[in-house]
Design a protein around this nucleic acid. Structure first.
Lengths: 343, 343
DNA sequence: ATGAAAGCGCTAACAA
DNA sequence: TTGTTAGCGCTTTCAT
């Protein structure tokens, strides 16, 4: 209860050794379990450690190369989404199970920041890194940064051949659109984000491919891409709904854009079916039929962890692996007693 | 494009010195800007650094106590909420502005993990720590962990007097309930989470106080607390709505529980007004009138950063500060042409 | 089983 | 302006 937070300089292994009446080596051995120590000495060391509230300096421990810090890093491009929240939570749990600590940093979707943070994390001697790659590595610099094992997650990075774990977003999107087609929809809109970078590019390719497979092509009026925020997606949706030939179904890509699209649907009290390549937790509030791709993050995480630990332990071959994980679907149909669907 | 990720051991300052034909000190001086170096030598060093893709080892740099690592730590209890996503994003930006790097770890709401991570971060020589305190420090151990400057965020920690920045959740909740009362509601339900720990305790106190102020007390049938997940909140909501005397309004605390409550409302096609002490981004989908507390995280962050930097620089007094930040309100009224509100 | 000592990568005090 | 050197906290031979 006494709240003095004096900045005393932390005790060192030397202090512990002195208090326990042993040498520094013995303290080190006890704390690391590196060698057998007499029960008596061990006990005295442990007591001193508790008394001084001592912690081995991770900095000093990891000065020499080759030692394990039992720390993993995670670089995410942004954090404001259900998807990444879950990713962080799952990875954190996996790291804990492995006896490692996870440290997260945010790249803000900027390649220069990703590069900086990879170096930063690496200079802090993390054992390995999970990276959700940002775009913009035009010079292919990524391939030169080989100081620390990296497994790329969720997106396929450009400019480097490395271990990647991601979901099969192409197939997921293809399935969604085939579903709409099977249910009779012919005027289908596409409201998406970036389409020239992964995974938007895969989704967009699926969109075009499936339409082509059915011998048709997208009405330009019904395609609106490049959205980065929900608001512009809302505007696009509203504009389409007000046109002469409004769509009967809408394809969206991210949870963020799905919210934007649903907002447009609400504003116009429209009756369209919506599908989305990502999941949101407020889906049950949708006033219209909604199908979402269900991506099991725990699958992604266990695969990524497996790949990274193999790299760290050096037990994996030299050839990088790319894994495309399968996805599921979640269908949400609005409560028939409410919403526009009852007219 | 050549994707060989060989695990070569990272170059040291010695390698750079050799390649540049100068001493290690000169390299250090160039890289840290600690002293004037001849343009020629500096240029050769920079070239060598680029060529070797060299980064100073943060580990080695921070071995000696007292040096700044230009790294801040953030310990959050959980990450699956809009609130913490935003907190991380804002703090990350603030750290970047300050020239520091933010590292996040997750305590999973467990005090032992919080304690472990504080030590871990501290042993990695972060300059300071933002901590969303977990509950469970019954022994008051927090007050003994004075190795690194800490600013507590969002919750008031137990067992220690330290710098805290949080929102005035008592007043926020009081305002919500006064609003309901003013709009004529008399059967008001309360569906919340933990009520014996902060900030739930503050919200629950406001609930009881405001009812008392109006000379009444809560109907036990309309109070359901201790919810940790959305599902049980949904069940509680449904049960209340099906009772003989259903509430006309519901008070909720967190965004998670708000979603649970709204789910119950949707399932029962009920017509109740809802208020919540946290914000969700899918609010526009609410089929019923909804008022949420708007907490400006950037305010929280700038205050927390100010306090932490003051502690780090030693420019703050010894007396810890507690700041209660004001909140706003967001009102969402459902689109009149849809949803249950049109009957 | 234990201690003394060298060395990890780096910075800073001291010489030159 | 530059190099040499001691030392940060810790681990790890190498003796004992």
């Amino acid at each position: 209860m006494s709240g003095r937070n004096i900045q005393r300089k932390p005790p060192t292994i030397k202090d512990v050794a002195a208090l326990a009446g042993v040498s520094m080596s013995t303290v080190s051995r006890v704390l690391n379990g590196t060698a057998v120590v007499s029960g008596d000495a061990a006990e005295r060391v442990r007591r001193a450690v508790t008394q001084l509230d001592f912690v081995l300096s991770a900095s000093a421990r990891t000065v020499r190369p080759g030692v394990r810090s039992m720390t993993w890093g995670l670089l995410v491009d942004a954090v404001e989404s259900h998807y990444f929240s879950t990713l962080i939570a799952e990875l954190d749990r996996a790291a804990q199970d492995h006896g490692s600590t996870l440290m997260v940093s945010v790249t803000q979707k900027e390649w220069v920041r990703e590069r900086h943070l990879i170096k930063e994390m690496s200079s802090r001697r993390v054992d390995g890194l999970f990276v959700v790659p940002a775009n913009g590595d035009v010079l292919g610099e990524r391939s030169r940064m080989s100081s620390v094992p990296i497994v790329y997650v969720d997106r396929i990075p450009s400019g480097v051949v490395a271990d990647v774990v991601t979901f099969d977003y192409y197939r997921a999107m293809a399935d969604l659109i085939e579903g709409l087609w099977a249910r009779g929809h012919r005027r289908i809109a596409f409201i998406g984000g970036e389409v020239d970078t992964d995974p938007g590019s895969r989704r967009y390719a699926a969109w075009n491919d499936i339409l082509a497979r059915h011998g048709t092509t997208a009405d330009p009026e019904l395609v609106s891409v490049g959205h980065l925020v929900a608001d512009t997606a809302t505007e696009a949706m509203v504009a389409m709904l007000r046109s002469d030939q409004p769509p009967t179904a809408v394809v969206t890509t991210t949870g963020l854009l799905l919210l934007g699209v649903l907002h447009g649907v609400v504003l116009e009290s429209a009756d369209v079916e919506v599908v989305c390549s990502e999941e949101i937790d407020a889906a049950f509030l949708s006033p219209v039929p909604l199908t979402m791709v269900a991506a099991d993050l725990s699958l992604l995480v266990s695969d990524a962890v497996e790949l990274l630990t193999a790299r760290i332990d050096g037990t994996s071959g030299t050839t990088p692996v790319t894994r495309l994980l399968p996805t599921g679907q979640i269908e949400v149909r609005p409560n028939p007693t409410m919403g526009v669907s009852l007219q």
